[in-house]
Design a protein around this nucleic acid. Structure first.
Lengths: 204, 204, 204, 204
DNA sequence: AATGAATGAGGTTTCATTCAT
DNA sequence: TATGAATGAAACCTCATTCAT
């Protein structure tokens, strides 16, 4: 008998199932795309019946929303860390890139699955922009502004500089998805190159 | 009677129709996505019957391929221009960014329509990478190498530096699609910021 | 402790629940139809779980049967009253119509819920005809025969005359369900008209 | 080559198909009910593919609407005939009943299929009442009023008297559907009984 | 070459029913 | 006895593709 008053075994199993389904879905969406993935595929991958899917998610679209919510949660954790101004600026960028790498290794398939739809689904796009992109841009912008005031970096327009960095990171993710080996298997050197270029420029 | 031996009126009308269909398709794919766009939608938008679609394209997938081929054609023109080493390096980047802007204004919807599928369709992805991405990366890398040899820029690893620039451009396109106003309506200043950062760095 | 030997509290609660479920079901069936009503709807309306439904009824169809049985019980009470030959014939018809009115006000929704299915379910139809319709027709026919022998009414064929009256009553119920205001809100005058027409005819 | 400008062979085949589908659907709806009839059943009965159904009707509900429209068309023809005041009153009722009989023999299954849903579908009910019931009631009421003014019949309230006749007819249809043999196989005598009762009453 | 009606495979979703708790 | 999560069959409907005209 399980008498734990906070979470019974059943409750835990259920909480788990939701996550299980979500991860199975995201993996398949990344592999074959949202539309080529059938609810049956997802059910099989998550080892539940199709009917059960609908006990956890109202419809197929809500799976995408669930994935996005998951990404947003992770993102917000990072955004808080971006607020940290201790350490020097290069070190900061280095950690951003390292952390980014880890996130992508863990849940890059979630980003991939969602990104594809974002490009062609205005409603989802808006959600993504408001919930994930803008917050990230905003905290980076704030960070840049603080660093500038501390005389650590130069930036005429932190809003635009933030776009350059975030854009770059997104773009490299795309290159990685495309299978580019330099990005996929040479991240450390790439990382160093990025820091070098962004801080010192290519000018001779 | 049209006696022009190279392209008869009929041939031109046909060539025209193919393009018409392709553009209609790309526009719809960008708006609602490949899968949410029906062949009927495309037929209506192109003002032909559904049956006629199949006289010009073997199946729906071939429309995507057609769009990609169209993008590749445009790209190759640019790649040749990237070979041009006259002018100074900043000026070169400025033209790259301007030219990029124009391309996106003219046929961004094509890129958008194709990108969404590329993210989740391995076969298409491979084609895109080989046909569009690698050539672009390669010519930029060559360009960088030449400039470096001419002592105009610094680059430890031109392959990676090329990835930084191309990645940045891709990423900014994504931000634009997401509707970010700084990227969409402030391109000139953004362009200046990019040149400034990439050449001189943000280091103080 | 309840020591009542005939019906314990528990038995009464259970009997109650059965009735509660049946009434909830009938009401929903009348509102949205048997097929558009889900077992979940019924469970919610009766404030029990779906599982509990199946402790009281073998399956959804049995709910319909239960409603029919309930109607049949009521009907049989009336049929006995139809056997009463005291009072004059007009008075008799008047009470039939009044009584009918009351039944419909109390449990018209049950009739409605069942009627819809009867029209298209041969098995149910047969049950309804044998269990409800024929008995009503038979007792009215007997009644008419008696009255005729007593010289109180004229009827060449009491079987057919009974059909005329029962048919009329059924048809008016239909008009009421259809929302006809003359039938719904003007029953007393309608009742008088019926008596007038059936006894004296419209002939001038 | 068919050069008939008004209706080509193809057009006729298509017009025909719509009717074919509608009749197949109505027949099945009457036999097993709207909800127990699958679109596949209908397609098979009409000897077309399921997809074809949807070229002629937007969805399953629209089949019901189509049936109702068909019934309304027939009804309106009769309503005009009800306007005819030549002939004596009994003769009029006799033709109404005869005509009714014929209609039911030809398309009773359509009425049956629709009636079942009308009982439990408020939207459909309203359509039926406004489109079929009210017009029928209204023209009968007008007819009665004219006859009364001509001194041919007695009626304190023609609106209610009309309800009595229409209600009776509906109710007898119900009895017929229920399989009552007196109504089904003895229509002529039933018809005579109705005329006799309604004109002369059962009073002795 | 152009049309658009016909097709039918396949997708999402619903829901009556079961059963472990 | 009561619960409600899990099930999976089956329903409606869409849509890429074909083909007779």
């Amino acid at each position: 008998m399980d008498n734990d008053p906070s979470t019974t075994r059943r409750e835990r199993r259920i909480a788990n199932r939701r996550t299980l389904i979500l991860e199975a879905a995201a993996r398949l969406f990344a592999e074959k795309g949202f539309h080529r993935t059938t609810t049956r595929d997802i059910a099989e991958a998550a080892d539940v019946s199709e009917g059960t899917l609908y006990n956890y998610f109202e419809n197929k679209d809500e799976l995408l929303m669930g994935i996005m919510a998951h990404l947003a949660d992770k993102q917000h954790l990072n955004d808080r860390f971006v607020g940290d101004l201790s350490g020097d600026a290069r070190e900061f960028l280095r950690s951003v890139l390292r952390e980014r790498r880890e996130t992508i290794e863990q849940s890059g398939y979630m980003l991939q699955s969602v990104l594809s739809e974002i490009l062609v689904n205005p409603e989802l796009r808006e959600r993504y922009y408001q919930g994930l992109m803008l917050p990230a841009l905003q905290s980076l912008e704030d960070h840049l502004r603080s660093r500038r005031e501390a005389g650590q970096v130069r930036s005429d327009n932190p809003a635009l500089t933030a776009r350059v960095l975030i854009g770059l990171i997104q773009g490299l993710f795309l290159l990685e998805v495309l299978g580019d080996p330099e990005v996929r298997y040479n991240w450390d050197e790439l990382s160093a190159t990025i820091i070098n270029v962004l801080f010192d420029g290519v000018s001779n």
